[in-house]
Structure formats: C-alpha cells, structure tokens
C-alpha cells in the first residue's frame, strides 16, 4: 500500500461521473485518507487497486504518488 493523490483533470470536470468518489470507495484495496472533496483526494492503494482505478476512472483523473516538497531556504 502506498499513498496517492487523485485529482480531477481540468479538461474532464464536466464529464466526470458525479458518483466518482463513491466509486473510489468501492474499489478493493483502496482507502480514502482525506475527506471527500470536489477535485482532489488522498488515498492509500495497493498496486491492484491502482490498476483497477486507472481502468475505471483513469481518463478523468490524474493519479500520482504523494510528493513531498521542501522549503528552499
């Protein structure tokens, strides 16, 4: 299991199924870590769950790992 950010593609906001977040919750091996939000959520997912998510909703969503940024001091 690893943490991923799921974000709605800007170009797909209109076409995205309204129940996309409940579809996420129904995927085995995927857990929502952040509260349901309009455009982005943080999830923990297994490799299988990620493949499933990509196949089901990938055309609407950007899926990328949680990336940490540092201050530039």
């Amino acid at each position: 299991m690893a943490d991923y950010v799921i974000a709605v593609k800007r170009t797909m906001r209109e076409e995205l199924p309204q129940n996309w977040q409940s579809q996420l919750e129904d995927i085995d091996g995927l857990t929502l870590l952040s509260p349901p939000a309009r455009e982005r959520v943080l999830v923990s997912a297994s490799p299988d769950a990620l493949r499933h998510l990509d196949a089901q909703l990938g055309r609407y969503l950007r899926i990328e790992p949680l990336i940490r940024h540092q201050t530039s001091r």
């Binding site: 943080l42 990336i67 940024h69």
Partner: peptide, 19 residues
C-alpha cells in the same frame, strides 16, 4: 500553510492552497 511541523509539503496540499 502546507508544511506540517518538521516535514515536507505534499503535492495535494500545494495544489489545494493554490486553488
């Protein structure tokens, strides 16, 4: 604020803050 104490800032939070 997007940095937790002593840790890096996550991409999801930077995007949300920009929004």
């Amino acid at each position: 604020r997007v940095f937790p104490p002593g840790e890096g800032a996550a991409n999801i939070d930077i995007a949300d803050a920009i929004d």
